[in-house]
Design a protein around this nucleic acid. Structure first.
Lengths: 228, 228
DNA sequence: CAAATATAATAGTATTACTATCATACTCTA
DNA sequence: TAGAGTATGATAGTAATACTATTATATTTG
């Protein structure tokens, strides 16, 4: 990961927090350790009290940054997709061949996050694991329509839109570019989850990656040729 | 839905409940109304106390049937997939042409549940909505490996396995039959969710169904011909 | 009719998900 | 450098959740 990344600040929807966690040491500690703690004990068991104990701070202080743990999860998800979008745009920017561009975008989106690039205080490897396990819970709630109106899902929607447009460029007659794009985004998280917990439900493992599966799927579906 | 269905009892993993809810009026009421109540207020807000109030029964009585609401969700999911498997096997049973058989299986699996077939006391239309909104929460938990060992996900795994085998029959060289099958199963729920809450992330709507999208996807991927 | 069983009612506990208040510490400026 | 403003910490308190336990009251069955 380029050193440039360390100085880039992802812009977040201001409604996601009460006080910007990027604006203080405590705020950054909350982000850093909430990722680690949710990964360790799971979102259901995670509480602000436990997080407070872990960072030697106080439950009430954390509430000054986030209304509740649901909003914190939305924030982390937003951060993740912002980071993902940045990497995707960065990686595909110079590519003029539409097929290669789409291939590269899929590659970035479906790749396992292995290296701790440590963009600021966020451990992206652990955040990626967290997103695989918890992302669905951020939108599978009764309040989803209001939260969508409030713009909490803007970034992941933009990623789907970008992929969809790339699909349309390589095949303007394909009738389901949006569904295909959203299937890749959600399906990638699911395939990683299955590889870890339900190996009999996936062909993905240490040797076969979700990138291979989805790249193959897109190329067959759009009738493209690799290295073509 | 055939009248036959009304007399069929789906076999459930006995560890899912403390006392079989099919064995009493109260038990059946718990199933019937938990489906309706979870659909109304969402799984997070759902409690045994609220369910008790609704069926004019007592919180403590419901605990005699289910350890907690998580187990109840696993039970409902298991029931749903059992019902789905039954319909899938029933619908594809007599078909000898492998392509037609696969097509039919995908059709059953991806179809919207519109008619209240009222298999016993379960409202399948509402249960289908519940599964779309809540199913992921049943396995995206820290205890998933133990619960998998306990066999709580046997049925949905068997459905994936069946589809995977059908894929292998029509194309023995396709390298990702399991991943493709699991993508269809999970992706269908996701596409329905998107159609309802994020219409800009899907091409599915009143006119275009997930069945069309996934049938097309499979046929393109496996290079099959419709009506062929 | 007695015994067994199912359900209801009530109470109680630990934890969660907060809100409110007050104390303290640090920081920035007149 | 005093004094104001802001950030954090400590403590307390509330309503709800997620249960467990006990006892009472129906209902079923033998």
């Amino acid at each position: 990961m380029d050193i440039l990344m360390k100085s880039v600040k992802l812009e977040m929807n201001g409604k996601l927090y009460v006080k910007d966690p990027e604006s203080s040491d405590l705020g950054r500690k909350i982000i850093e350790h909430s990722i680690l703690l949710i990964d360790e004990i799971g979102f259901e068991c995670f509480t602000f009290k436990k997080l407070g104990a872990r960072i030697h701070s106080n439950e009430s202080s954390i509430y000054r940054y986030f209304e509740n743990k649901h909003k914190l999860l939305l924030y982390l998800a937003s951060w993740y997709w912002g980071w993902m979008e940045y990497r995707m745009v960065f990686a595909t920017n110079g590519i003029s061949d539409p097929v290669k561009k789409l291939k590269k975008a899929i590659e970035v989106l479906t790749q396992n996050v292995e290296e701790d690039s440590s963009f600021s205080h966020v451990n992206e490897v652990v955040l990626n694991k967290l997103i695989i396990n918890e992302y669905s819970k951020s939108y599978l709630v009764k309040e989803v329509d209001q939260e969508n109106k409030d713009g909490y899902f803007t970034i992941s929607k933009r990623i789907v839109s970008r992929i969809s447009k790339m699909i349309q460029v390589v095949d303007e007659n394909y009738p389901y570019p949006l569904s295909l794009a959203s299937t890749i985004l959600e399906g990638t998280l699911h395939q990683y989850f299955l590889a870890e917990h339900f190996p009999k439900l996936t062909n993905c493992n240490e040797k076969i990656t979700p990138t291979q599966f989805f790249t193959d799927l897109i190329f067959r579906t759009l009738n493209l040729k690799l290295n073509g």
